[in-house]
Nucleic acid binder design. Structure first.
Lengths: 145, 145
DNA sequence: TTCCTTGCAAACGATTTGCATTGGA
DNA sequence: TCCAATGCAAATCGTTTGCAAGGAA
Protein backbone atom coordinates (compact mmCIF):
# COMPACT_ATOMS: atom_id res chain seq x y z
CA UNK A 1 0.00 0.00 0.00
CA UNK A 2 2.45 2.63 -1.21
CA UNK A 3 -0.29 4.28 -3.13
CA UNK A 4 -2.73 7.11 -2.80
CA UNK A 5 -2.47 7.48 0.93
CA UNK A 6 1.28 7.68 0.80
CA UNK A 7 1.04 10.38 -1.85
CA UNK A 8 -1.43 12.36 0.18
CA UNK A 9 0.78 12.27 3.22
CA UNK A 10 3.76 13.30 1.15
CA UNK A 11 1.87 16.24 -0.22
CA UNK A 12 0.50 17.29 3.12
CA UNK A 13 3.91 17.31 4.75
CA UNK A 14 5.36 19.25 1.84
CA UNK A 15 2.63 21.83 2.32
CA UNK A 16 3.52 21.99 5.97
CA UNK A 17 7.12 22.65 4.97
CA UNK A 18 8.62 19.63 6.73
CA UNK A 19 10.59 16.69 5.38
CA UNK A 20 9.17 13.25 4.88
CA UNK A 21 12.17 11.34 6.12
CA UNK A 22 12.80 7.63 6.49
CA UNK A 23 11.82 7.50 10.13
CA UNK A 24 8.63 9.41 9.50
CA UNK A 25 7.77 7.16 6.60
CA UNK A 26 8.17 4.10 8.79
CA UNK A 27 5.88 5.53 11.45
CA UNK A 28 3.23 6.37 8.88
CA UNK A 29 3.54 2.91 7.33
CA UNK A 30 3.12 1.22 10.71
CA UNK A 31 0.03 3.28 11.42
CA UNK A 32 -1.35 2.52 7.99
CA UNK A 33 -0.95 -1.22 8.57
CA UNK A 34 -2.64 -1.14 11.96
CA UNK A 35 -6.31 -1.95 12.43
CA UNK A 36 -6.63 0.64 15.15
CA UNK A 37 -4.84 3.46 16.97
CA UNK A 38 -1.31 2.92 18.31
CA UNK A 39 0.69 4.56 21.07
CA UNK A 40 4.23 5.89 20.74
CA UNK A 41 5.72 2.87 22.48
CA UNK A 42 3.58 0.46 20.49
CA UNK A 43 4.92 2.10 17.35
CA UNK A 44 8.44 1.98 18.70
CA UNK A 45 8.10 -1.76 19.27
CA UNK A 46 6.28 -2.37 16.03
CA UNK A 47 9.28 -0.79 14.30
CA UNK A 48 11.65 -3.03 16.27
CA UNK A 49 13.28 -0.06 17.92
CA UNK A 50 14.51 1.34 14.62
CA UNK A 51 13.01 4.68 15.63
CA UNK A 52 13.78 5.86 19.18
CA UNK A 53 10.78 6.64 21.34
CA UNK A 54 11.51 10.32 21.53
CA UNK A 55 11.63 10.51 17.74
CA UNK A 56 8.34 8.67 17.52
CA UNK A 57 6.82 11.31 19.78
CA UNK A 58 8.26 14.11 17.70
CA UNK A 59 7.11 12.48 14.51
CA UNK A 60 3.60 12.07 15.87
CA UNK A 61 3.55 15.73 16.86
CA UNK A 62 4.61 16.77 13.37
CA UNK A 63 2.05 14.47 11.79
CA UNK A 64 -0.67 15.75 14.06
CA UNK A 65 0.16 19.37 13.25
CA UNK A 66 0.00 18.53 9.57
CA UNK A 67 -3.37 16.86 10.07
CA UNK A 68 -2.11 13.46 9.03
CA UNK A 69 -2.85 11.65 12.28
CA UNK A 70 -5.29 12.15 15.12
CA UNK A 71 -4.85 11.41 18.81
CA UNK A 72 -7.10 9.09 20.75
CA UNK A 73 -6.89 9.13 24.53
CA UNK A 74 -7.20 5.82 26.28
CA UNK A 75 -6.79 4.22 29.67
CA UNK A 76 -3.80 4.73 31.92
CA UNK A 77 -2.89 8.05 30.40
CA UNK A 78 -1.94 6.46 27.11
CA UNK A 79 -2.40 8.43 23.92
CA UNK A 80 -2.82 6.43 20.76
CA UNK A 81 -2.72 7.82 17.23
CA UNK A 82 -4.39 6.82 14.02
CA UNK A 83 -4.53 8.09 10.46
CA UNK A 84 -6.76 11.14 10.20
CA UNK A 85 -10.31 10.75 9.00
CA UNK A 86 -9.69 12.25 5.58
CA UNK A 87 -7.11 9.49 5.03
CA UNK A 88 -8.66 6.54 6.81
CA UNK A 89 -12.34 7.40 6.41
CA UNK A 90 -14.82 8.19 9.14
CA UNK A 91 -15.28 5.41 11.65
CA UNK A 92 -15.89 4.65 15.30
CA UNK A 93 -14.26 2.53 17.97
CA UNK A 94 -14.84 -0.61 19.92
CA UNK A 95 -12.82 -0.39 23.11
CA UNK A 96 -12.17 -3.60 25.02
CA UNK A 97 -12.30 -3.22 28.77
CA UNK A 98 -10.39 -6.47 29.13
CA UNK A 99 -7.25 -5.93 27.09
CA UNK A 100 -7.53 -2.26 26.18
CA UNK A 101 -7.40 -2.95 22.47
CA UNK A 102 -9.22 -0.56 20.16
CA UNK A 103 -10.84 -1.73 16.96
CA UNK A 104 -12.29 0.38 14.16
CA UNK A 105 -15.90 -0.02 13.05
CA UNK A 106 -18.10 1.72 10.54
CA UNK A 107 -21.75 2.49 10.90
CA UNK A 108 -24.21 1.80 8.09
CA UNK A 109 -24.45 4.85 5.87
CA UNK A 110 -28.00 5.76 6.83
CA UNK A 111 -27.40 5.71 10.51
CA UNK A 112 -24.19 7.63 10.20
CA UNK A 113 -25.78 10.58 8.45
CA UNK A 114 -28.69 10.49 10.83
CA UNK A 115 -26.28 10.60 13.72
CA UNK A 116 -24.51 13.53 12.12
CA UNK A 117 -27.70 15.52 11.88
CA UNK A 118 -28.57 14.71 15.42
CA UNK A 119 -25.19 15.78 16.65
CA UNK A 120 -25.32 19.06 14.80
CA UNK A 121 -28.78 19.73 16.12
CA UNK A 122 -28.22 18.98 19.79
CA UNK A 123 -24.84 20.68 19.92
CA UNK A 124 -26.02 23.78 18.14
CA UNK A 125 -28.64 24.21 20.79
CA UNK A 126 -25.82 24.30 23.36
CA UNK A 127 -23.97 27.02 21.46
CA UNK A 128 -21.34 24.57 20.40
CA UNK A 129 -19.61 24.68 17.01
CA UNK A 130 -19.20 21.06 15.96
CA UNK A 131 -16.13 19.96 14.08
CA UNK A 132 -16.47 16.20 14.45
CA UNK A 133 -17.78 13.35 16.52
CA UNK A 134 -16.80 9.90 17.62
CA UNK A 135 -18.79 7.07 19.04
CA UNK A 136 -17.01 4.85 21.49
CA UNK A 137 -18.48 1.48 22.29
CA UNK A 138 -17.04 -0.18 25.38
CA UNK A 139 -17.30 -3.84 26.26
CA UNK A 140 -15.40 -7.06 25.77
CA UNK A 141 -13.78 -8.16 22.55
CA UNK A 142 -14.05 -11.68 21.19
CA UNK A 143 -10.87 -12.85 22.88
CA UNK A 144 -11.69 -11.36 26.28
CA UNK A 145 -15.28 -12.54 26.46
CA UNK B 1 -28.72 18.36 47.05
CA UNK B 2 -28.07 16.08 50.02
CA UNK B 3 -30.76 13.78 48.82
CA UNK B 4 -31.21 10.57 46.95
CA UNK B 5 -27.86 10.56 45.26
CA UNK B 6 -26.05 11.09 48.52
CA UNK B 7 -27.96 8.17 50.05
CA UNK B 8 -27.15 5.93 47.15
CA UNK B 9 -23.45 6.67 47.40
CA UNK B 10 -23.53 6.07 51.13
CA UNK B 11 -25.15 2.73 50.63
CA UNK B 12 -22.84 1.70 47.85
CA UNK B 13 -19.73 2.48 49.87
CA UNK B 14 -21.15 0.64 52.87
CA UNK B 15 -21.69 -2.38 50.63
CA UNK B 16 -18.10 -2.05 49.47
CA UNK B 17 -17.02 -2.09 53.13
CA UNK B 18 -15.30 1.29 53.10
CA UNK B 19 -15.96 4.43 55.11
CA UNK B 20 -17.67 7.48 53.71
CA UNK B 21 -15.41 10.04 55.34
CA UNK B 22 -15.42 13.82 55.20
CA UNK B 23 -12.84 14.04 52.46
CA UNK B 24 -14.66 11.49 50.34
CA UNK B 25 -17.93 13.30 50.86
CA UNK B 26 -16.39 16.53 49.66
CA UNK B 27 -15.04 14.90 46.52
CA UNK B 28 -18.42 13.37 45.75
CA UNK B 29 -20.15 16.69 46.39
CA UNK B 30 -17.79 18.53 44.06
CA UNK B 31 -18.40 15.96 41.35
CA UNK B 32 -22.13 16.18 41.89
CA UNK B 33 -22.06 19.96 41.48
CA UNK B 34 -20.01 19.83 38.28
CA UNK B 35 -21.62 19.98 34.87
CA UNK B 36 -19.03 17.60 33.47
CA UNK B 37 -16.14 15.30 34.36
CA UNK B 38 -13.30 16.58 36.55
CA UNK B 39 -9.69 15.58 36.97
CA UNK B 40 -7.95 14.95 40.28
CA UNK B 41 -6.24 18.32 40.23
CA UNK B 42 -9.41 20.12 39.19
CA UNK B 43 -11.11 18.52 42.19
CA UNK B 44 -8.20 19.45 44.41
CA UNK B 45 -8.53 23.08 43.34
CA UNK B 46 -12.29 23.08 43.46
CA UNK B 47 -11.97 21.97 47.09
CA UNK B 48 -9.48 24.77 47.73
CA UNK B 49 -6.76 22.32 48.63
CA UNK B 50 -8.71 20.94 51.57
CA UNK B 51 -8.05 17.47 50.20
CA UNK B 52 -4.47 16.73 49.12
CA UNK B 53 -4.03 15.55 45.57
CA UNK B 54 -2.87 12.10 46.56
CA UNK B 55 -5.99 11.65 48.66
CA UNK B 56 -8.15 12.79 45.79
CA UNK B 57 -6.56 10.08 43.67
CA UNK B 58 -7.12 7.47 46.33
CA UNK B 59 -10.68 8.59 46.83
CA UNK B 60 -11.36 8.40 43.11
CA UNK B 61 -9.92 4.90 43.02
CA UNK B 62 -12.18 3.81 45.88
CA UNK B 63 -15.20 5.44 44.26
CA UNK B 64 -14.43 3.82 40.94
CA UNK B 65 -14.10 0.39 42.52
CA UNK B 66 -17.44 0.90 44.21
CA UNK B 67 -18.98 1.91 40.89
CA UNK B 68 -19.81 5.41 42.08
CA UNK B 69 -17.74 7.27 39.51
CA UNK B 70 -16.46 6.54 36.02
CA UNK B 71 -13.23 7.63 34.36
CA UNK B 72 -13.11 9.60 31.16
CA UNK B 73 -9.78 9.93 29.36
CA UNK B 74 -9.04 13.28 27.83
CA UNK B 75 -6.27 15.30 26.26
CA UNK B 76 -2.76 15.56 27.64
CA UNK B 77 -2.97 12.31 29.53
CA UNK B 78 -5.56 13.72 31.88
CA UNK B 79 -8.16 11.41 33.37
CA UNK B 80 -11.41 13.04 34.44
CA UNK B 81 -14.10 11.43 36.53
CA UNK B 82 -17.84 11.85 36.69
CA UNK B 83 -20.70 10.30 38.61
CA UNK B 84 -21.55 6.86 37.24
CA UNK B 85 -24.43 6.53 34.82
CA UNK B 86 -26.76 4.90 37.32
CA UNK B 87 -26.38 8.03 39.47
CA UNK B 88 -26.13 10.78 36.89
CA UNK B 89 -28.18 9.28 34.08
CA UNK B 90 -26.99 8.34 30.61
CA UNK B 91 -25.54 11.22 28.64
CA UNK B 92 -22.87 12.21 26.15
CA UNK B 93 -20.12 14.81 25.94
CA UNK B 94 -19.25 17.99 24.15
CA UNK B 95 -15.47 18.37 24.21
CA UNK B 96 -14.05 21.81 23.50
CA UNK B 97 -10.87 21.76 21.46
CA UNK B 98 -10.14 25.28 22.61
CA UNK B 99 -10.16 25.07 26.39
CA UNK B 100 -10.49 21.33 26.94
CA UNK B 101 -13.70 21.70 28.92
CA UNK B 102 -16.19 18.84 28.79
CA UNK B 103 -19.92 19.45 28.98
CA UNK B 104 -22.69 16.90 29.40
CA UNK B 105 -25.53 16.62 26.88
CA UNK B 106 -28.48 14.32 26.48
CA UNK B 107 -29.89 13.02 23.25
CA UNK B 108 -33.61 13.07 22.58
CA UNK B 109 -35.15 9.83 23.80
CA UNK B 110 -35.96 8.47 20.38
CA UNK B 111 -32.53 8.95 18.98
CA UNK B 112 -30.88 7.54 22.03
CA UNK B 113 -32.71 4.24 21.83
CA UNK B 114 -32.15 4.08 18.12
CA UNK B 115 -28.45 4.61 18.71
CA UNK B 116 -28.46 1.86 21.30
CA UNK B 117 -29.94 -0.62 18.88
CA UNK B 118 -27.48 0.36 16.25
CA UNK B 119 -24.57 -0.06 18.58
CA UNK B 120 -25.72 -3.46 19.71
CA UNK B 121 -26.20 -4.55 16.15
CA UNK B 122 -22.91 -3.39 14.67
CA UNK B 123 -20.85 -4.51 17.64
CA UNK B 124 -22.47 -7.91 17.84
CA UNK B 125 -21.46 -8.52 14.27
CA UNK B 126 -17.84 -7.93 15.33
CA UNK B 127 -18.11 -10.48 18.14
CA UNK B 128 -18.05 -7.75 20.71
CA UNK B 129 -20.04 -7.90 23.94
CA UNK B 130 -21.29 -4.35 24.52
CA UNK B 131 -21.50 -2.95 28.01
CA UNK B 132 -21.98 0.71 27.17
CA UNK B 133 -21.35 3.48 24.71
CA UNK B 134 -20.49 7.13 24.66
CA UNK B 135 -20.74 9.73 21.97
CA UNK B 136 -18.12 12.41 21.99
CA UNK B 137 -18.73 15.57 20.02
CA UNK B 138 -15.66 17.71 19.47
CA UNK B 139 -15.61 21.35 18.48
CA UNK B 140 -15.60 24.77 20.07
CA UNK B 141 -17.68 25.82 23.04
CA UNK B 142 -19.54 29.10 23.21
CA UNK B 143 -16.67 30.90 24.91
CA UNK B 144 -13.96 29.61 22.59
CA UNK B 145 -15.82 30.23 19.34
C1' DT C 1 -6.54 -2.30 70.15
C1' DT C 2 -7.27 -3.02 65.23
C1' DC C 3 -8.12 -1.52 60.77
C1' DC C 4 -9.12 1.88 57.57
C1' DT C 5 -7.76 6.44 56.08
C1' DT C 6 -4.73 10.28 55.42
C1' DG C 7 -0.55 13.18 54.29
C1' DC C 8 3.79 13.77 52.81
C1' DA C 9 7.43 12.57 50.05
C1' DA C 10 9.63 9.42 47.04
C1' DA C 11 8.89 6.55 43.04
C1' DC C 12 6.90 5.70 38.40
C1' DG C 13 5.75 5.90 33.64
C1' DA C 14 4.36 8.53 29.67
C1' DT C 15 5.69 12.50 27.31
C1' DT C 16 8.61 16.67 26.45
C1' DT C 17 12.73 19.22 25.89
C1' DG C 18 17.89 20.86 25.73
C1' DC C 19 21.75 20.18 23.27
C1' DA C 20 25.14 18.48 20.35
C1' DT C 21 25.31 15.73 16.03
C1' DT C 22 23.71 14.11 11.60
C1' DG C 23 21.75 14.43 7.12
C1' DG C 24 19.13 16.21 3.22
C1' DA C 25 18.12 19.87 -0.21
C1' DT D 1 26.27 25.38 3.26
C1' DC D 2 22.40 25.64 6.30
C1' DC D 3 18.61 24.46 8.66
C1' DA D 4 15.52 20.62 9.71
C1' DA D 5 15.71 16.19 11.91
C1' DT D 6 17.67 12.92 15.14
C1' DG D 7 19.37 10.60 19.43
C1' DC D 8 20.40 10.60 23.94
C1' DA D 9 19.80 12.10 28.48
C1' DA D 10 17.72 15.09 31.69
C1' DA D 11 13.53 17.31 32.94
C1' DT D 12 8.25 17.42 33.39
C1' DC D 13 3.88 16.15 34.74
C1' DG D 14 0.09 13.25 35.98
C1' DT D 15 -0.44 9.44 38.86
C1' DT D 16 0.88 5.70 42.22
C1' DT D 17 2.86 3.97 46.36
C1' DG D 18 5.58 3.32 50.96
C1' DC D 19 5.37 4.54 55.36
C1' DA D 20 4.34 6.69 59.59
C1' DA D 21 0.60 9.32 61.94
C1' DG D 22 -4.46 10.03 62.82
C1' DG D 23 -9.30 8.23 63.64
C1' DA D 24 -13.27 5.50 64.03
C1' DA D 25 -15.25 1.15 65.65
Amino acid sequence: MVSIQERQVEERLADAGVRYTGGRRRVVAALGRSGGPMSASELHESLRGSVPVSSVYRTLAVLEDAGVVEPHHSAKGLTRYEMAEWLAGHHHHLVCQGCGAVEDIELPEGLESQLENLVRDVSGRAGFRVSGHSLEVVGLCRRCT
